[in-house]
Simulated assay, not measured.
Amino acid sequence: MPLPDIGAWRDLDFFASDWPGIEAALAQDDRDILPPATQRFAALQLTPPENTRVVILGQDPYPTPGHAHGLAFSVEPDVVPLPRSLKNIYMELQNDLGITRPNGDLRDWAKQGVLLLNTSLSVPAGDANGHKKLGWQRLVHQVLKRTSARPTAYILWGKSAQTLESNILPGDHLILTSAHPSPLSASRGFFGSKPFSAVNTWLNSRGEQEIDWARNSEAA
């Protein structure tokens, strides 16, 4: 199927050099691939490069059908219970800013300039990291270089995301690193890291509008 409208991201070399091969590989994979093809590039659709102020890197989409919809850590609003990593993110948000959100849909963050990008944009259902070697990482490398052409806040949770820091061009950035919010590591430095208030303090110091981490309004 043709690429959706991803705005200026379409200029990245990835879409000419790498995407055709990945698209062909996906077409030949007879498993249930998540998220649905129409949502695969949702992060780029909702947060164009000119609007990106914060980048949060995930890993691969949730492998449970009905959960992933193209944004790192986000799930469809009717998903209950929340995935454990997202539950821990919400616990830290509550501890940091006293915010409780109504569901796991983070599209409102994306529309405020928070790029919620997974390092792999597809996964076979039930097979976590099943597309880790498909070639998506080259897209992430180019997105990081593109966004870091101007001051940007980066939230890198866990070693997998932190290894990508070398793709961030030098600049007046905010780079926050901590343990991953997964249950296996959240207690090793994720809890208490206060990334949400740190981002808003940084944005405020630059005279930019803060992220309203509480706003959901059904993520519209």
Rank of each mutant, 00 (worst) to 15 (best):
D5F: 01
D5E: 15
I6M: 11
I6E: 07
F14A: 08
E23W: 00
E23H: 12
E23M: 03
L26N: 02
Q28E: 14
R31Q: 11
D32A: 07
P35R: 02
T38D: 14
A42Q: 14
A42V: 01
Q45C: 12
L46R: 15
L46T: 01
T47D: 03
P49Q: 09
N51I: 00
T52L: 06
V55M: 08
V55C: 03
D60L: 00
P63H: 06
G66K: 04
H67W: 14
H67A: 08
A68G: 01
H69C: 03
G70P: 02
A72S: 15
V75S: 09
D78C: 01
D78M: 08
D78K: 11
V80N: 10
S85Q: 02
S85Y: 10
S85G: 09
L86S: 06
N88H: 15
M91D: 12
N95R: 14
N95Q: 14
G98C: 02
G104C: 02
G104P: 04
D105N: 15
D105K: 03
L106A: 02
R107G: 11
W109V: 07
W109I: 04
L115H: 05
N118Q: 04
N118L: 06
L121P: 02
S122C: 12
V123E: 15
V123L: 02
A125G: 04
H131L: 05
K132N: 04
W136M: 10
Q137L: 15
R138T: 15
L139M: 13
H141V: 10
Q142K: 09
L144M: 08
K145L: 03
R146P: 00
T147M: 13
S148E: 05
S148W: 00
S148P: 00
A153N: 07
W157K: 01
S160V: 12
A161H: 05
T163Y: 07
E165K: 14
D172H: 06
H173V: 06
L174T: 03
L174V: 10
T177W: 00
H180L: 08
P183Y: 10
P183G: 07
S185T: 15
G189A: 06
F191S: 06
F191Q: 12
F191L: 15
G192Y: 11
G192V: 10
S193T: 07
K194S: 12
S197W: 10
S197I: 04
A198S: 15
A198F: 00
V199R: 02
N200W: 06
T201G: 05
L203I: 05
N204Q: 13
S205F: 00
G207D: 13
E208W: 14
A214N: 13
E218R: 14
A219P: 00
